[in-house]
Structure formats: structure tokens, C-alpha cells
Design a protein around this nucleic acid. Structure first.
Lengths: 240, 240
DNA sequence: GTCGTTAGAGTCATTCTGACATTAACTGGA
DNA sequence: TCCAGTTAATGTCAGAATGACTCTAACGAC
């Protein structure tokens, strides 16, 4: 077991308590102006301090002693990006001993979704930026954060219940075409509009309203809304 | 915010670092001698020290400074119960501020499966015991451990991929009837043997061997084996 | 009005599912 | 040895779900 130059010796930090932090992968869909399939994207913050100064990292920070883990995730997200996500779910806890070169770091990662209207907005300064998830600029990230993002994408694709997820990404009312674009962005393939409509009508998780989306060039589509019911008992309440 | 008698004042522990621990929900299936549907059960340890002395708790313990979280879960499980599970997956991290009356406690909960042959065995002393998950004796448990068990059961029932789970509960070779009993125990309902066989043949996740289970009174059933491939990239490697 | 576009409903062949019947292979007792 | 009883494994069939496709309705642009 050799000592790496510039790294604290492992034995020196043997009896230090581990640092507890939260990080949040917050995904949104970037609209395609031409109406094509949207792309999943997320905000990242540039690290100011060592280690990994200058690299892009997930928004997050240390856990306060009098806040729950979910509260810490929401607080640090608001402080660094100004975003208040409508969906927050614990993703995974990363605690390998070599995650940070300077100390033992245990990070509880959270997974959030942001309404499509807020994507790209609320950027407080040049140290916060939105990236498409497949942007080559973020092929490498600070710490093991790229691994965290990849796991969040895997979890999203393997969700059995997309209903509430799509609803969180879109907001209160949405058209079936918008909803279909969300599913297509997550699944990475095109879906037949007619069959998509039929399947949603069978599962009674969304409801037609008597409103229509005005302003388009063509026939106005009907607006739908999601009938709540979260199946995961561990979803974080962000209603406050 | 009043002070509870016998509890440390919240302000007194404000600046103490949080204690990091792991706990493991390790589920097995208890065979029904009459061949009926098996029952999910798990080993628990009786707490010796305060708080919650005398109550049943999940096996676990503090995280060492030079071990990963998964290693800590496997080590504490072996130390307290002698079990070496073949499947170990991170479940959830519990970090509410009121989990323990004496200090801020953050627990990374793990979820393990034990082979049916080991259920009820390896009980080192009277402070370790196996319980059916619906045993009224464990309707209440130490800390928030009952909540952790319930969440593990929810996750198990909501898994999309039962293949590898069933395989971990049963061992290397198994008959289709045994596999069906595992599915029935998890899903809580009976399945048609013929349709069950047909579905498994379509998904090529198990393979027929040319061996048969001898010793029964009737026609010997063919043995099958599971073709590996874990879909969850965060499953813990217990092969060491 | 017509044309182009999108919303939304309908058609049909294929596949999947649940329920049930049938045949095969073994043990134990008459 | 033959038969009854039990379990393993396969087959059948109607109804449901699915994928690919067509058809009609409703809008704006011209």
C-alpha cells in the first residue's frame, strides 16, 4: 500500500470521522425548438476549491447536524442553483474509501426532476451551467460524480412507473404529445402516437381536462393532468 | 421544542459528528414441510446496550474508516449472525435527526438474500433468532428498524427482475416448482405451473440441465440453473 | 374555399396471458 | 405385476394486449 504524492497518507486519516455530504442529480428535458425529441440535461457547478478545482461537479454540500438528509439535498440545491425541484428521491450512498484524495467522504446522492419550464434558467453565475447528459465536456467530472450521473440515468430508464416522473418534468397540465416526448427521451426510442394514447387510457393514471392548448398553428391538443399516487414510500416530500 | 426525559438535549449534540452505521435486512424463505408456499423470514439480534436494550434489531454496526460501506455490511453481518449472503444490495440511507435518542445516527441499510439451506441455521447464541416477517413479536423493533424491514419487503415485491433474486435464494440448481414457490412467496399469490414454465422458457434467463432431482416419491423433476447477468450496476460483489 | 399539419379514433394481424385439459414418469400398495 | 395416486411437463383455446397502419376531425395559412 503505497502513498500517492499529494494525497494524504491513508493512515493519517484513520481515526478522523467521515465527512457526510449530499449531492443531487437533477434532470430536466431541454425542448427541441423543431419539436424533435427533447434531451435530458442537468445543471452542474464548477468547483472552486481543491480537490478537483475547476472540474464540474454535482450541486451539493455537507449535511447539517439538525437537518434530515433530504432537507440537506434540497437546501444545498437551492443555495447553489436556485432550483426548487418538484421531485426528490434518494438515489444511492457512495462511501468507498478512495472517493476523495484528502479525506474519507460519504455522499448520499439524490435524484431530482425539474420542470421543463425551468431548464436553463436560474443560473446565478458563470460557475453554474446546464449540460446535456451526453455532452463530451462532462465525460469526466469531479470525484466519482460521473458514475453517480450514469447510475441516475440507469435508474430513470428502469423505472416501472413513469407516470409521476413525466408529470414532474412537465408540470400540472400537458398534452399527450408532450408526454410522449418525455417517454421517448427516457426510453431513447420513438413511440407510436396512437398506441401511446391507447395505453394511457387503459391505465387510469391521467385524466383528460376540458381545456385545450391554444396558440399553435394547427389543431389545438387537449390538455391532460396526472392523477397522483406515488408508489415509492421513500419519496421525499418537497411540498414543505 | 421540549426536552424529553432521559434523552440528550438536542443542542448538546449539535456539533458532534454523526455516527455512521450499517444495518442489513437479510431475507430467506422458510420451507413449508407440507410443500405449501414458503414464508419470508429474517434473523434479528437482541440489543444488549441502551438505547432500546432488549429489543430486536437488524444485524449491523459502525462503519470502519478503511472499509467500504458494502464491506462493512458484510463484515457486521458475519460477526453477528455468521451468515455470508450471496446477494447484497444497498437499500436506503436513513438519516432523520430523531432516529436515536442519544446521538445523530445515519444508517446505510443493506438488503441481502440468504440461501434457503441456511435459513434457521448458524445461530450463535440466544441473542440471535429468526422471525417470519409477519410475526407479531417483531411488529415493533428497535430504532426505526421496522420501517427498514417494511421498505425492504416493498422493494422486493416491486423488483422487475426476479430471476437473480430467486436464484440467490435457492442456490445453484433448482427445480421449476421450487422457483415457482419463491415467486409465490414474494408476490403473495399462487401461480399456474404451466404458464409459469412457459414464461420462463421465453425469457432465456434460466437453462435446463440434464440432471433430475432424485429421491422424491413421484416423477423426478428436471433441474435448472440461472444464467447470470445482474441488471443493477450497484449490486455489491460478495465474491471477494 | 383548399392545402398542409397535427389531434385523435379505428382496424387488423400477431403475440401474450390465464384457465384448463392432457400426457408422461415415478412410487407404493394390492 | 398391475393399478391407483401423485407430480412433471406439454398442449389447447379464448380473451387481452401489442405493434403497425389507416382514416377522420380540427385547426391555421393562403
Amino acid at each position: 500500500m503505497s502513498s500517492v504524492p499529494g494525497w494524504a497518507n491513508v493512515d493519517e486519516r484513520r481515526n478522523l470521522p467521515p465527512a457526510l455530504a449530499v449531492s443531487t442529480v437533477i434532470l430536466g428535458i431541454r425542448r427541441d425548438p423543431e419539436g424533435g425529441p427533447g434531451k435530458l440535461c442537468l445543471p452542474l457547478v464548477r468547483r472552486i476549491r481543491q480537490p478537483h478545482a475547476g472540474s464540474w461537479a454535482l450541486p451539493g454540500g455537507p449535511v447539517g447536524s439538525r437537518e434530515s438528509l433530504g432537507q440537506a439535498a434540497g437546501r444545498t440545491l437551492a443555495e447553489t442553483t436556485g432550483l426548487h425541484p418538484s421531485y426528490l428521491e434518494q438515489l444511492y450512498t457512495f462511501g468507498d474509501t478512495d472517493r476523495s484524495p484528502t479525506h474519507r467522504l460519504v455522499t448520499i446522492a439524490y435524484f431530482a426532476l425539474v420542470n421543463i419550464e425551468e431548464v436553463g434558467t436560474r443560473v446565478p453565475d458563470e460557475n453554474v451551467a446546464w449540460f446535456d447528459v451526453d455532452d463530451p465536456q462532462i465525460a469526466e467530472m469531479a470525484f466519482d460524480h460521473r458514475k453517480i450521473v450514469d447510475y441516475a440515468l440507469w435508474r430513470l430508464a428502469n423505472k416501472t412507473e413513469y407516470g409521476q416522473i413525466a408529470h414532474r418534468l412537465l408540470g400540472e397540465r400537458f398534452t399527450l404529445a408532450q408526454l410522449r416526448l418525455v417517454y421517448e427521451a427516457i426510453l431513447g426510442k420513438e413511440l407510436d402516437p396512437a398506441n401511446f394514447r391507447r395505453q394511457l387510457n387503459n391505465t387510469a393514471s391521467i385524466e383528460a381536462t376540458d381545456e385545450y392548448l391554444a396558440g399553435g398553428k394547427h389543431r389545438p391538443p387537449r390538455l391532460y393532468r396526472y392523477l397522483g399516487h406515488g408508489p415509492d414510500p421513500m419519496e421525499v416530500d418537497t411540498s414543505k
